[in-house]
């Protein structure tokens, strides 16, 4: 399938979804507070009292902040673990156990510690998406052909050379598979945080509109959350294309 026809099909799928949604509102008697039409949801953009800009900006900061933090700390720890097996042996079981704790359940604690605002939600997004990045990157760093290590060791390569020339580039496909999973989780984490305690953000906005049964505004908020998530995912895909796919490094 050519690239163009793939885009065409994708566009057809997305527009088909909106059309089915619209048909459902036209052909049934569902009241608007249950299922508003796409047009009604879209029209909410122009409602100035909703302060879309503030909410979108808050949620974007939480998602991207938590995500970048997770990538930096996840990759950093993975590198340390690959260098220091003792550190890995000591901390990995602990991290696995901590990862079992539902991040949602930790949210109230973060709010006690960090107060209201963007930071605790960023931290929740971070905790929820950090682990997959750590695990996949660590695995990628270790997944090196033993004979390849022998080859460079026969040249008396030092550890730093082995890391920079062999391990790190070899781990990139793994890192990106973790980053893609994490991108989805980061969105969920930020919204959950906003549900629990916040004064702004799209999650906060969703709850506020729920009380007013303002379904069309809730739909629009969902659409914005999705857009932020898609933007993050798209950035990761673009980066992956630049450093992995373009060079033909599949797993």
């Amino acid at each position: 399938m050519t690239l163009l026809s793939r885009y065409l099909w994708a566009t057809a799928g997305l527009s088909g979804f909106v059309v089915v949604w619209w048909l459902a509102t036209v052909m049934t008697d569902l009241p608007a507070y249950l299922l508003p039409s796409p047009g009604a949801a879209l029209a909410e953009i122009w409602e100035p009292s909703y302060n879309w800009g503030t909410h979108i900006w808050a949620t974007t900061q939480e998602i991207f902040g938590g995500y970048v933090l997770a990538v930096v700390i996840g990759v950093g720890l993975a590198v340390l673990f690959s260098w220091l097996p003792a550190l890995n042996a000591a901390l990995m079981p602990l991290l696995v156990v901590l990862n079992m704790v539902p991040k949602v359940a930790m949210a109230p604690l973060f709010i006690v510690w960090l107060g209201f605002g963007i930071v605790p939600n960023m931290v929740i997004a971070f905790t929820i998406c950090f682990f997959p990045i750590l695990l996949t990157t660590y695995r990628g760093l270790l997944e090196v052909e033993p004979d390849l290590i022998n080859l460079v060791k026969s040249l008396k390569a030092n550890r730093w050379q082995i890391f920079l020339k062999i391990q790190l580039p070899g781990s990139l496909p793994y890192l990106f598979s973790g980053m893609k999973v994490a991108a989805v989780l980061a969105v969920a984490g930020a919204i959950v945080g906003e549900f629990i305690a916040s004064q702004k953000g799209l999650g906060y906005f969703l709850l506020a509109q729920q009380n007013a049964l303002n379904t069309s505004a809730m739909m629009m908020a969902l659409a914005f959350i999705t857009l932020i998530g898609v933007a993050l995912y798209g950035l990761v895909l673009g980066l992956e294309y630049l450093v992995v796919t373009r060079k033909g490094i599949g797993k």
Binding site: D147, L155, I166, P169, G170, L172, K247, G248
Partner: peptide
Amino acid sequence: PGRDVGMVFQKALLLKW
């Protein structure tokens, strides 16, 4: 040692990137 050794293995072990 190191400088004067060249190795070839059963797998080509070329770096994909």
